[in-house]
Design a protein around this nucleic acid. Sequence first.
DNA 1: GCCGTCACG
DNA 2: ACGTACGTGACGGCA
Length: 604
Amino acid sequence: MEQFSLFKNSKEPETEQTVSETPSNSPIAHSPSPVTCLSFDIEATGRNPISDSIVGIALCKEKGKAYYVPIRHAHGTNIPDALNILKEVLEDESIPKVGHNLKYDILILRQEGIHVKGRLYDTMLASYLLNPNKPDHSLENVCLEYLFYKKRPFTEVLGKRHSFSEVPIDDATQYAAEDAELAMELKDILFEKLKKEGLEDLYFNMEMPLIYVLTDMEEIGVRINKERLEELSKELDRELGIIESMIYAIAGESFNINSPQQLQKILFEKLGLKPLKKTKTGYSTGVDVLEELSKTHQLPAEMLNYRTLYKLKTTYVDALPKLIDKKTGRIHSSFNQTVTATGRLSSSEPNLQNIPIRGEWGTKIREVFIADKGCILISADYSQIELRILAHISGDKGLIDAFSKDIDIHTRTATELFNIPKESVTEEMRRIAKTVNFGVVYGISPFGLSEALNITPKEAATYIEQYFNKHDGVKNYMDDAVKMARENGYVRTLMGRKRPIPEINSHNTNIRQQAERLAINTPIQGTAADLIKIAMINIWQRLKEGNLKTRMILQIHDELLFEVPETELEPAKKLITHEMENALSLSAPLKVDIGWGKNWAEAH
DNA sequence: GCCGTCACG
DNA sequence: ACGTACGTGACGGCA
């Protein structure tokens, strides 16, 4: 799979270029050889690929001919040796595999000891690359859009039955075989469109290989200290009980603390506190408001405390143990590849990309994520990845200079904003500069910055003006990104990933300005997403080639977490750092911070 | 099923 | 006059 190296050092960075018009900075290696493809679709008992078992497999080699192979139907003829026969075909590296959401099928097959190999054509991922704004890339929807065909929905075939295995064999065959055939039909149509849009490089060399990386991550999962979570739950119970009675005492009555509606009545009617912000449905009781009100009253202060602990208890401490898989004893999150508009992954059931990190409870919860016996966790995260990417795509001299010298970027920005030497930068100034740097990446506006810093929009505008004075490259990038979006109706990342921005010419100022911020932010956030995907594929490949036992287990946007045998610690650290820092060659160097320990808190 | 809220990058 | 920072997922309340 040498094509992955194409992403590496493929071309000298073009500092003049702002938003890449041409889709990619790497040449197309070769179109895949049109060997006979096999389209397949797995029918299984449920929705959880790690534990569910297979019911049947649909196969299609050419349009008009599709088959259904019943494996474990409740009634009728099953074909006992089918899996063994199919294993050979599915594991044949020379036969490309076509399917819709292949990660799911591959995971189910792993349960049966079948390790799918070979080139992949996933029609769901094709649909995603063609338009990542779409909320639904189900086979139903993709068929509707590209084949103008309304598929019979799965729920209708299932009826009131509990499992696909109970569906009468004729119905099951009809349904399953059609799925396999539709994927085969979609493959050619979508591939042509990908080519036309300049997306086939991303498709074949990034999203398809990533499927194998993500299936491994999902299959391996992460180990959790269940007993410790149960202790933490009791501890939180006690604390919450105390705070709860305190809140009732201060309020002078008991009410449902978790109801924002009831809290509003207490705060703004009974206690007569000033409502500071509105929501669609009433007065806001969010963090910003409660923090402000805390200055004058004890109730909002206690509410903040309560909300923090309640959130941690319900969303993490109590939820995680329920998701430990009975077979593996570990937690197997889903890494979703077709959700975000920017190209990032998302994680669900559970979301392991938003595990708490801040505060004492953040540490306590991260300590629960532990390495297996004889193993260590390695955490490797990109330092300032988005600002480094901004430096590259904008070609801003000041930013590139700062990163080339590995200068603390927020302190550097503070010296520029306040016109002072770095020795004079205070904590407060650095905090402001940090917020400005974040704002720049988001498509800064005086109002947004003023909200974030709790200052007036006028003061915020002064900071922004001062920032652009020192960074005209960044200013030019922003103007170009918006211009590009207006002319084309979309923006692209450095690797050519597309995101349509249909609202860019809206007559509604708010909508249009929001679209402009997307045009600015998406190439940055999206390029960071592309970059870490390249690193993941290369690391996965090298671990495999080197027969290492080190396993990638989580991706958190700019961080990768690995479970590493103690004996592999040194080589793994070296390999990971090298592949992450050299995933792409940018005009601002990439920097990776690496840490390790027995649990995630220690590793970070 | 939507809303507000809040955990993360 | 309005109302905005970018990207997610999960929880409880409420209609």
